[in-house]
Simulated assay, not measured.
Amino acid sequence: MNSEQKLKDIWFAGGCFWGLEKYFSLVPGVINTAAGYANGNTEQTTYEEVCRGDAAFAETVQVTYDSFITGLENLVFLFYKAVDPTTVNRQGNDRGIQYRTGIYYTSEEDAEAIRRVTEEVRKKYASPLAVEIKPLKNFIPAEEYHQKYLDKNPSGYCHIGKEQFEAAKRGNIDPADYERPPDSVLKDVLSPVQYQVALENGTERPFGNEYWDEHRKGIYVDITTGEPLFSSRDKFDSGCGWPSFSKPVDPAVTVEKEDASHGMDRTEVRSRSGNIHLGHVFDDGPRDRGGLRYCINSASLRFIPEEKMEEEGYGAYLPFV
């Protein structure tokens, strides 16, 4: 099921733009990518001039994304997975001011989101980060030769590894970190309602479930694996009696399937790693949030309030709530 689109742009610099352009083109929710030169000191430039460092441009990728599908926080986290944020004017074999790392924005709202994620990333490094976070001063599209370079030249040079490209396809959350226990174990640890809803495609009662009127900040995770699924920031009161969200915390963590049960034509939502029944998605959600309503059973979720996220291992997702 498709959302309405609300397209936004963000600009990332991180070594050779050939690889970074390909990397972001694989991310769910990214609509378009373009290689170019950003934050230099002239109105026009060429690749040769950029390589000489004459006007201090950075090789940069413009990323156009559907903010109703993926958030800026997701993209910034993925950026940090593709670069070494501690090196100055260098990524891989690429050296020079044009290969510096940077994130360029056009709104203060975006700047705040970038800084929140960057602060969480900073905690993982002993060395200071060398990523410049600045307003976009200018962006000049690169020559056609450089656009979608790795699509046209699959064996071309790239400083980003194959595993990182695969991670981009998966989104920000790695399913390998969230393994579902055997059903025999789940039978013992889940309540009868949780087991019936999550593993047997059941439905709990409206207005009588655990999270339908939960208003605290926090994250909702798969009851069987702990994989992050939904954020309190995307939760809204739909009046249906079940928790309702405008989108998942990452578009890759849910799977949609056609559901013709009970004589209805619906779209079922399942979790990616746990493959459990979550609920259904409908197109009657708030238009200013994309138009979707993820109607989810509380019994398939575990809520972790904001103040406990760090101690339970979800500190990296604090910028999402």
Results as ranks from 00 to 15, higher is better:
2 N>Y: 13
7 L>F: 13
7 L>N: 13
9 D>C: 11
11 W>A: 09
12 F>Y: 11
13 A>L: 08
13 A>E: 06
16 C>F: 10
17 F>Q: 08
17 F>H: 12
19 G>S: 13
21 E>F: 09
21 E>L: 03
21 E>H: 09
22 K>I: 00
23 Y>P: 05
29 G>Q: 07
36 G>A: 05
37 Y>V: 00
39 N>Q: 10
39 N>G: 07
41 N>L: 13
42 T>I: 00
46 T>C: 00
47 Y>E: 01
51 C>K: 09
55 A>E: 11
56 A>F: 11
57 F>S: 03
57 F>L: 02
58 A>P: 00
59 E>K: 00
61 V>K: 00
64 T>D: 05
69 I>V: 15
73 E>V: 09
74 N>H: 02
76 V>L: 12
78 L>S: 02
78 L>R: 09
80 Y>V: 05
84 D>R: 07
85 P>A: 08
88 V>Q: 09
90 R>Y: 00
93 N>E: 13
97 I>N: 03
97 I>V: 15
98 Q>P: 07
101 T>R: 13
105 Y>L: 12
109 E>Q: 14
109 E>F: 04
109 E>P: 04
111 A>N: 15
114 I>C: 06
115 R>I: 13
115 R>E: 14
116 R>Q: 15
117 V>D: 11
117 V>W: 03
118 T>D: 11
119 E>R: 15
120 E>V: 14
122 R>M: 02
123 K>G: 06
125 Y>P: 06
125 Y>K: 05
125 Y>G: 03
125 Y>R: 00
127 S>N: 12
127 S>D: 14
128 P>K: 10
129 L>K: 02
134 K>S: 13
136 L>W: 09
137 K>H: 09
140 I>R: 08
141 P>Q: 09
141 P>F: 10
148 K>N: 15
149 Y>M: 06
150 L>R: 04
150 L>N: 08
151 D>I: 06
155 S>I: 07
158 C>L: 01
160 I>C: 04
160 I>V: 09
161 G>Y: 10
163 E>P: 08
164 Q>H: 08
168 A>T: 06
169 K>P: 05
170 R>C: 12
171 G>V: 06
174 D>P: 04
177 D>P: 00
178 Y>C: 05
179 E>T: 15
183 D>L: 12
184 S>I: 14
186 L>C: 09
192 P>I: 10
192 P>A: 05
193 V>T: 15
194 Q>H: 11
198 A>S: 15
200 E>K: 14
200 E>Y: 01
206 P>I: 12
209 N>L: 13
226 G>T: 08
232 S>G: 15
233 R>I: 11
236 F>K: 11
238 S>Y: 04
239 G>E: 06
242 W>V: 07
243 P>H: 03
247 K>F: 00
248 P>A: 10
248 P>S: 10
253 V>G: 07
253 V>M: 01
254 T>F: 04
254 T>M: 07
257 K>A: 09
264 M>T: 07
266 R>S: 05
274 G>P: 10
280 H>S: 01
282 F>R: 06
282 F>T: 12
287 R>G: 05
288 D>N: 14
288 D>C: 03
288 D>P: 03
290 G>N: 04
290 G>T: 00
291 G>V: 12
293 R>L: 02
294 Y>R: 01
296 I>C: 01
300 S>V: 02
300 S>M: 03
301 L>H: 00
301 L>I: 02
301 L>C: 01
309 M>H: 08
310 E>W: 04
310 E>D: 13
310 E>K: 15
311 E>N: 04
312 E>L: 15
